[in-house]
Amino acid sequence: MHIVVLLKAVPIVGTERLGPDQRVQRGQLEANGNDEYVLEKALKLTEANGGEVSLLSMGPASAIDALRKALAMGATRAYHVQDEALAGSCIRGTVDVLVAALRKIEFDLLFVGADTSDGLGGVVAPAVAARLGLPYLSYASEIRASGTGVSIDRLSPTGFDVQEAASPAVVMGTQLLGEPRYPSLRGIMQARTKETTTWSLADLGIDPASVGEAGATTRFIGSETPPQRSGATVVKAPPDEAAAAIVDFLATRRLI
């Protein structure tokens, strides 16, 4: 069984900074938290049933650290799509590139995270599935894979639905798949010699003008830092007084 995991390197949550152009500076990157959950599940499934896990990431050169960590966790190899012309890609551009890369890889299952901490879209995965004409199973809290297909528990407002599809299929998973492992020292050593393939846009046969800033279908107008909350009013009082103070506060704000 060959599982490909889509892994995005994102700015470290909480440390994002704005550059002089009012855009987010791509400083140090880490693996997107949601992608590590599906990676963990992919590793468990291949450990139990045999097979390999490949990583696919589109991102700048600095994404390599996130890929190395995922290799150290146990992935077999990484494909890294990296090209100067990709900076400023819109979602459609990202989808085009990932689809072109996936057409070069033969896989049984494609695992993706629920969304990215910097994009917050949660739409790249279904778009990739639709473009490839593959079944799309989402919001998985459990994934069961057999040689010929996949079955998941999809979270619903009232519980979960069991969904099934034949391979190849695209599966989006959630945090409920389980805590990702930490790389072991041995894993970190092994990761150094694992295969990492870097693809440029030319390698994928994509016209640089059709992606990145040049080919973007959406445009950035500007950004602002909203006024932050001005600091809390602090109440230190015995519980009865504290409760009364909260009620008064809620009443002045017409919340009760």
Binding site: C90, I91, R92, V95, D115, G119, L120, G121, G122, V123, V124, A125, P126, A127, V128, A129, A130, R131, Y136, S138, Y139, L155, T217, T218
Partner: peptide, 24 residues
């Protein structure tokens, strides 16, 4: 709407129609 189903539908539509999308 950015619900679970909404995101699935929106993403699939991007793939099927090639329309641009702004999220969040």
């Amino acid at each position: 709407g950015a619900s679970s189903d909404g995101k699935d539908i929106a993403g699939a539509l991007v793939g099927l129609t090639d329309l641009p999308i702004l999220v969040n």
